[in-house]
Design a protein around this nucleic acid. Structure first.
Length: 875
RNA sequence: GCGGACGUGGUGAAAUUGGUAAACACAAGGGACUUAAAAUCCCUCGCCUUAAUCGGCUUACGGGUUCAAGUCCCGUCGUCCGCACCA
């Protein structure tokens, strides 16, 4: 390092400067007319919670690096940004601070947009959309009406969490230990008629097409497959014992994927909402109380399934399909879901852990019916672990000796021919775990559902010319419940059909609807129809979609379902909206709470002590805070670190580099600022190094003596181009950074090796290596590299420059170093020509001192030569 | 409870996907330069043993497959994400 330059790179000056230059030149504004090949990079758009946090920084930096890299590679890159702007926090702010959701949201958007701009992200801001703007949701309403016309949405009754004190519907998140978060009242389940999107129409296609999503992470594909949950089973009708059957009920239909275990059945269980349970409860107050208790559990599956398994014997009995004299009790059980299958099961304790736990609890028989290989039928017993594997049927009458698969078919065939109360007793049925998407919300801050209820005409779609159905602004949040419903006049309208007075739908759409098609709207953000089909087809699918793993199922599945529905309605022609998916790891942080249970932000506390004695002290009150678990950064838990706080001290470039360095992008990271000083030093070093190199490059004098190996420098430079390009291509940003450090170190050594006037060759090598380094770093640190580029006397800006190309001839290695192992342990290494024949490699390895010492004159048992990799001598 | 992942030095991690474990960094320690500090540069840095080399051990834990395992298989423990009204 010559180190004679005492100047420093100043991001405070350079960053706004280059942002202005890019802005003025419209460097990132993309045109539909461009002839070059398209590339659509999209990061999941943010909810405008107020400020961007470092998790956002990680997400958007990844997308930006890819966008800039692809642009330099000659693609016409679409890289838009917008706002997922409807949602509960805006209403909560309205209740808490008396801020109107619209004002609150727009202020947040303005502030977050400033933050994003200051980070130098290459978004095409001319395409910005906010889902809460009528210009956006008008088209969403159009989509809704098209779906309605095409039979893709419908109404049905379903359950919500009901707060009986606040008279309001609660989100699962607002139910804490079975109580409403504000009122503290025990939550009840309540039936409401709501709007549903028929995503199950696409279940089979959504499942099958997963195999075509080759650029998706395997884990997401597995999760979606499991979520759709296709199973092939049997519905079986069990005759009720007439003695015990409630009036009007003669059989009970269950769904099972294991009809082979039918002789292991020991009880029946139905959901609390099952008609048979309802009927049985009519003259059984205790059962009625039990059912009521089940309804107090909230609606989330996680809550239901983690609750203690409980059942209530209804006194009803069923007859076993293969034995009239065998009756089984019918229970109402809190773990049976009305939504899945038929809402009723038969319990086979030996073959299902949950059934076994239930049987042990209520002292029901446990009979093994599948014998694992290697066990003896006479002694095999189920203790407290159910056996779910395969084997041979036992204790199962005519099924004995069959495999479970054969037994499945046998049961299906036999019962398929039996008539019970006018129906076949058993039918094969393909079942999906996937349910239709209930997307009505009883809230204000969402897209109004454009339908009208007319006493004459019933449910009437709003006329197209009346769209958008706009949210009223004069709403009050004084009382709980849906402000749209409370509004004195808003719901009064006239029927688009008959002009009679009518009422508007007061439910709004789930915010997941907003994000299920925004990627399509970005392709024509101001069009007077939801999309312009040709334009959408030209841009879609999104080539690389980047966002958190937490969206692996719902958002991505809904979007896939919407794309199919939009295709049916003619808005798109693609089926799969996201060709490539990258799920970044979450940025996590400790959480802190006061003794009252209020969350405290990390900015409002200090630490005392270390290790086990570490204490968090609230700055304001001096109170010792409870240090909670490490969780995903979220506004609701206040464990967020502001995105630009670091940028204000160290610059956007250093922040961008920092969030990508070290950790692989798909891995969760616990946020820490440790290391940012090192990045700051690197940015300074890069700038200084370019400056020093430039001084040498631009000197006119050619020396005659070599200062450094210029061939080696060129080799390193070209190798870096290959490695860094490959890393960007595969979104392995941490590896790209390691390679960039390597090239920087090599270049830096060359520059500081210059003691005499450099030769012409040396200056040429330095020029190439320096240009490459600056270009390779540019996607991550675009501001400082533009400054460097200008320093190198270039008359272009880097944003317009093409990506460097590695010269293959520099990438070849003539000789390689092979490690030599003896019995799998490394004992030495040999340097050999790259294509040296195996025998000669073997000889070279055996002649190593370390090897011959161990061999001690004996000949080896075997020598394994893996070309280009390793030699292993087995003794 | 169910589904999906992850676990490597003081720290973040790398390992061409079964082939030299610890690349590249951060932190720490030592040194050079300086009146001093900052900045910068050089050196050391998994553990044990040794003056140093040599040697031995080491990828959460316990088994297994293989010439060879961080990587594949089985089990255990821990952490995180999702579970349909948070976004």
């Amino acid at each position: 390092m010559t180190g004679n330059n005492q100047e420093r790179y100043n991001p405070r000056e350079s960053e706004p400067h280059w942002q202005k230059v890019w802005d003025e030149r419209q460097s990132f504004v993309v045109s539909d007319e461009d002839e070059r090949e398209k590339y659509y990079v999209l990061e999941m758009f943010p909810y405008p919670s107020g400020r961007c946090h470092v998790g956002h920084a990680r997400n958007y930096t990844m997308g930006d690096v890819l966008a800039r890299y692809k642009r330099a590679n000659g693609f016409n890159v679409l890289h838009p940004m917008g706002w997922d702007a409807f949602g509960m926090p805006a209403e909560n702010a309205a209740i808490k601070n008396n801020a109107h959701p619209k004002t609150w949201t727009h202020q947040n958007i303005a502030s977050m947009k400033d933050q994003l701009k200051s980070m130098g992200f290459s978004f095409d801001w001319t395409r910005e959309i906010a889902t809460c703007d009528p210009e956006y949701y008008e088209h969403q309403q159009r989509l809704f009406l098209d779906f309605l016309k095409n039979d893709l949405v419908y109404r049905k009754s379903s359950k919500v969490n009901w707060d009986p004190v606040d008279h309001t519907v609660l989100a699962n998140e607002q139910v804490i230990d079975g109580r409403g978060w504000r009122s503290g009242a025990l939550v009840e389940q309540k039936e409401l008629t709501q709007w549903f999107f028929k995503i199950t129409d696409f279940a089979e296609d959504l499942l099958e097409s997963i195999d075509t999503l080759e650029d998706w992470p395997e884990k997401v594909r597995i999760m979606q497959k499991n979520w759709i949950g296709k199973s092939e089973g049997l519905t079986v009708r069990w005759a009720l014992d007439p003695e015990t059957a409630p009036e009007g009920h003669c059989d009970l239909e269950v769904y099972t994927t294991r009809p082979d275990t039918i002789f292991g059945a020991s009880f029946m269980a139905v959901a609390a909402d099952h008609p048979l349970a309802q009927a049985a409860a009519k003259n059984n107050p205790e059962l009625e109380e039990f059912i009521k208790e089940c309804r107090r559990m909230g609606t989330s599956v996680a809550a239901l399934e983690t609750a203690e398994k409980r059942g209530f014997n209804t006194g009803i009995h069923v007859k076993h399909p293969f034995d009239d004299n065998w009756t089984l009790p019918v229970y109402v059980a809190n773990f049976v879901l009305m939504d899945y299958g038929t809402g009723a099961i038969f319990g086979c304790p030996s073959g299902d852990q949950r059934d076994l736990d239930f049987a042990r609890k209520y002292d029901l028989p446990v009979k093994a019916v599948v014998l694992p290989e290697g066990e003896d039928a006479a002694t095999f017993e189920i203790d407290d672990v159910a056996y779910t594997g395969t084997g041979v049927m036992i204790n199962s009458s005519f099924l004995d000796g069959m495999s479970p698969t054969e037994a499945f078919d046998e049961v299906a065939n036999r019962l398929g021919n039996v008539d019970i109360n006018g129906n076949v007793q058993a039918e094969r049925r393909v079942n999906y775990r996937l349910r239709d998407w209930g997307f009505s919300r009883q809230r204000y801050w969402g897209c109004p559902i454009p339908v009208v209820y007319c006493d004459n005409c019933g449910i009437v779609p709003e006329a197209d010319e009346n769209l958008p159905v706009e949210l009223p602004e004069d709403v009050s949040f004084d009382k709980p419940g849906n402000p749209l419903d409370h509004h004195p006049t808003w719901k009064d309208t006239t029927c688009p059909n008959c002009d009679a007075p009518a009422r508007r739908e007061t439910d709004t759409l789930d915010t997941f609807v907003d994000s299920s098609w925004y990627f399509a709207r970005f392709t024509a953000p101001t069009a007077s129809t939801p999309t312009v089909t040709d334009t959408a087809d030209a841009w879609l699918p999104v080539d690389q979609y980047i966002g958190g793993v937490e969206h692996a199922i719902l958002h991505l599945l809904y979007s896939r379902g919407f794309a199919r529905a939009m295709k049916i309605c003619g808005h798109l022609n693609v089926t799969e909206p996201f060709k490539g998916l990258f799920t970044q790891g979450m940025v996590t942080h400790e959480t802190y709470k006061t003794s009252q249970g209020d969350w405290v932000s990390p900015e409002e506390l200090k630490f005392e002590g270390t290790g086990d004695d570490r204490k968090a002290i609230h700055l304001q009150s001096g109170e010792e805070l409870k240090i909670g678990s490490i969780e995903k950064m979220s506004k609701s838990k206040l464990n967020v670190i502001d995105m630009t706080a670091m940028a204000e001290s160290f610059g956007a470039d250093a922040t961008r580099w920092f969030v990508l360095s070290d950790s692989p992008p798909e891995r969760d990271v616990q946020w820490t600022e440790a290391g940012i000083e090192g990045v700051w030093r690197y940015v300074q070093k890069l700038w200084r190094l370019v400056d020093d190199a430039n001084a040498i490059i631009s000197s006119e004098e050619d020396g005659s003596a070599e200062n450094f190996d210029s061939e080696a420098l060129l080799k390193a430079a070209h190798k870096a181009v290959a490695q860094v390009s490959e890393s960007y291509e595969n979104l392995r940003f941490n590896r790209a950074i390691a390679h960039l450090y390597d090239l920087t170190n090599t270049l830096s050594k060359a520059v500081s090796a210059i003691k005499l006037a450099p030769t012409h060759k040396e200056r040429a090598a330095l020029r190439t290596a320096t240009d490459f380094l600056v270009k390779l770093c540019n996607p991550i640190v675009p501001h400082v590299t533009e400054t460097c580029w200008a320093r190198l006397n270039k008359d272009s800006i880097l944003a317009d420059e093409a990506w460097p190309v590695a010269d293959e001839s520099y990438l070849k290695e003539d000789s390689i170093i092979l490690p030599v192992q003896v019995n799998g342990k490394r004992r030495g290494e040999i340097e050999v020509a790259k294509d040296l024949p195996k025998e000669q490699v073997e000889d070279a390895a055996l002649s190593l001192d370390a090897v011959s010492r161990i061999l001690d004159g004996k000949s080896p048992k075997k020598v394994i030569v893996v070309p280009g990799r390793i030699v292993n001598v087995v003794v």
